[in-house]
Design a protein around this nucleic acid. Sequence first.
DNA 1: AGTATTATGTTGCTATTGCAACGAAAGGAA
DNA 2: TTCCTTTCGTTGCAATAGCAACATAATACT
Lengths: 234, 234
Amino acid sequence: MKNEIDACCLCDLPLFDGIKEEERAGLAACICSGVKVFKKNDIIITEGDSAAKAGIVQKGRTFAYIIGEDGGRIFMASHLRGDIFGEVVMFAKNEGSPVTVEAAEESEILMLDREKILNPCEKACGCHVTLLKNLLISSADKFAAQRVMIATLCMKKLCGKIAAALIYFSRKAGSDTFNLPFDRAAFADYLGADRSALSRELSRLRKIGAIDFYKNSFKILDRKKLCGKRADKI
Amino acid sequence: MKNEIDACCLCDLPLFDGIKEEERAGLAACICSGVKVFKKNDIIITEGDSAAKAGIVQKGRTFAYIIGEDGGRIFMASHLRGDIFGEVVMFAKNEGSPVTVEAAEESEILMLDREKILNPCEKACGCHVTLLKNLLISSADKFAAQRVMIATLCMKKLCGKIAAALIYFSRKAGSDTFNLPFDRAAFADYLGADRSALSRELSRLRKIGAIDFYKNSFKILDRKKLCGKRADKI
DNA sequence: AGTATTATGTTGCTATTGCAACGAAAGGAA
DNA sequence: TTCCTTTCGTTGCAATAGCAACATAATACT
C-alpha cells in the first residue's frame, strides 16, 4: 500500500467545503487510512463485503455494479478523479456492501474509515458538523443521480431511454458534444437493454440525423428527431 | 392549518434514535412548523417548487412522482404513517423539488423546516450531531430503496421486473403474503411498464400458479415459476 | 337504488427488442 | 508483422410488450 496522500486532491473536494484551509489537512489525515493501488479489473469492494469501506479516486476510474438475479450486470455508478464512493452506504443500517466496485483502469484509491468519520478525534469537533452536513449534501446529490437513472429506465422504449441518457450527460457536460463514461456494453447495462439492440438503435438515430458518435464520444444533432416517433419504413 | 403535533408519532421516528427521551419533544417542536391536512389528490409539493419542504406523514398516505418528458408518470416513492419525505432533497444543491408529492388519501402532514434543521436553536446543539447522523442513515436507507428500484427496472423482461418487485415487497413485509402500496396503474408506473401489459402478465403468472392476488394483496406461491422461462404455447 | 366514475382485466394488432450468431474493426502482445 | 483479444455493428428470427379499444367489476356520489 502506498502512503502518499495527494493532499491537493483530497482537500479540494466538496467534502471539505466550509472547512478552514488550515484544518483540512489535519481532518484529511484523520479520516483516511491510506492509499491503495488497483490494476484494471481489480475488485475494490465486493458485493456483500461486511466492512463498510469507502474511497476517493485519486487517479484512474472505477465503477460500481450489481450482479442481478438473472446474471445480468446492473450498472450503478462510475467514479472519476475526485469522486467518492461507498460513503452513502457506510451509513445504512443494512450490513454488507450492496455493490461491487471495480477499477476500470489502473487506479489509486484513498481509502476512508467509517469509524473515523462517525467518531473523529476530539479536536476535529468543530469541523465535524460541517463534515456531516457535507456528507448529507453528497448523499443528496447521489440520490439525485439515481433518480435520473430511474427516470431513464422508466422510459418505455429504448429510444426514450437513449434520449434521456444522452440529454442527461449532455447537460452534465454543458455541451451537445460529450463523452459517455462507459463502453457500449456498460451503456447497455446502464439502460437495462441488450447491447446489440442498443447498437441497432444508435445506428438508426445516426442514420436519421438525430445524433452522431464515435466510440464513447457523442454529439446531439437534433433533439426533436431524438425523441420523435420512428419514421415509416423505408 | 391544524397545530396539534402528534408527539408520539414524531418522537418514535428513527429520526430521533439516540436522542434522550426528555430532549425529543423540544427538538420536535423546534424543527417543525405545523401540521397541514390534505385531501385525496391534493398536491403537497409541486415539482419545481423552490421552497425545500419536507414532511412527516402523521395520518394517511402520500406518494412522489415525476411527470416524464413523454408525459408518463414516473413513480418514485410512497409514504405511509411515520415516513418522512423531502428530507434528502432538502440538502441537495440543486434548487427546486425534483418530484411532485401527492396525497393518496386524506392525510395529515407534519411540515418540517429546512432552516431549523440545518441551523437549530443553540440549546439543541447536543442533539444536533445526532440528528444529522440520523438524517444520514435515513438518506442511506432511501438510497438503498432507490437502488432496489433500479435493479428492478433493469430487468429486461416484464416478468423479471414483476418478480423483482414482488420478491422485494415480500421480503420487506417478511411474508409471502403482502400488500403492495399502489394500485395497478401505479404499479405499472413503478415498473416502467404499460398497465394492460402488466395485467396480462399478472394473469399469466396466476394461471401458471406462480402467484395469486386480489386487488393490491399478493401472495407468492412458487418462486421458480415466477422467474422461470415461459412455457411453450398452449 | 341508480348513476357516474374509477379500477381492473382482456384481446388483436404490430412495433419493438431480446437473443444468438457472425463479421469487421481496433488494439495489445509476442 | 502476426496472432489473439476485445469491442462494436449487423441481421434474422421469435418473443415480448406497447397501444388502443372495449368489457366488466368495484366504488363513490346523489
